[in-house]
Nucleic acid binder design. Sequence first.
DNA 1: TATTGTTATACTCTATAACTATA
DNA 2: TATAGTTATAGAGTATAACAATA
Lengths: 146, 146
Amino acid sequence: MPRSLVRDSIESDPLSSLPGYALRRAANAMMGDLAARLVVTDLRVSDATVLLLIADREDMTSSEIGKVLDIQRANMVPLLNRLETSGLIRRRPIDRKSQAILLTDTGSARLADVRRIIAAFENDLMARIPAPHRPHFVPALQALTD
Amino acid sequence: MPRSLVRDSIESDPLSSLPGYALRRAANAMMGDLAARLVVTDLRVSDATVLLLIADREDMTSSEIGKVLDIQRANMVPLLNRLETSGLIRRRPIDRKSQAILLTDTGSARLADVRRIIAAFENDLMARIPAPHRPHFVPALQALTD
DNA sequence: TATTGTTATACTCTATAACTATA
DNA sequence: TATAGTTATAGAGTATAACAATA
């Protein structure tokens, strides 16, 4: 790499070599991309994530979904209400306190679209990473999340 | 890796092997960590980033800072007002339209604290990544940001 | 004409505290 | 006592449109 290119990249963004900063920038860029791709499904990234999580399950409560996805109980309420209003999920009582969150048929159909979009997104994402770095990417990220 | 561990990790978070999801989770966790470390400086992550960027420069305008950091012009206004009110930056007219954003002495002193905290943060972050993955981390992220 | 700085506004995401009802 | 679901609310971050003044 020519010295001038190093200088240019340093001058255009002197923080880009900081791991935390690079991580934030990459995540923002990729989530912006994903959100744009999901517009056609009328779903937000968190919505799509919930649908993916409850697929093929009939036993997850709102609290459990929140624990897995790092979304607080209180913030699950508007999210699930939105999905229920859209007819994508329904609630089935487990006891008089808890409810299972289930996909409706409409939800399953929408999930099929989501799966296609996510697959293309994940594929494009990995394709942007130079091959030698690729196998290290997800393991490194997982190590940061615990 | 024993099959039971694979099953456990899949059951506890079946999405963790998706690169985009892993990226989002890692970035959220790390930025939460950094924000907590910066509490003692009374700065937000974006505030600290701006201070780092304008250090040793006397020529950056609000618009230019925003372009580098991916913060829109309109959103720079409250950010810089906050830093100015705290006495960390000041504005020097370049012409009758543009102003350079400069660190004050107070800002330089605060930046020294920020640098120490960021250095420890970046160090701890990289330390959490297993050594074989470590050199691939920042290059992979940079490839995603363009 | 394009750009700088700004105002106003709205939406999303996230965080906390508190309440009710039930396990 | 602890947990599930909820309400209300506030703080951040982000996005758009529009405006005046100046390059």
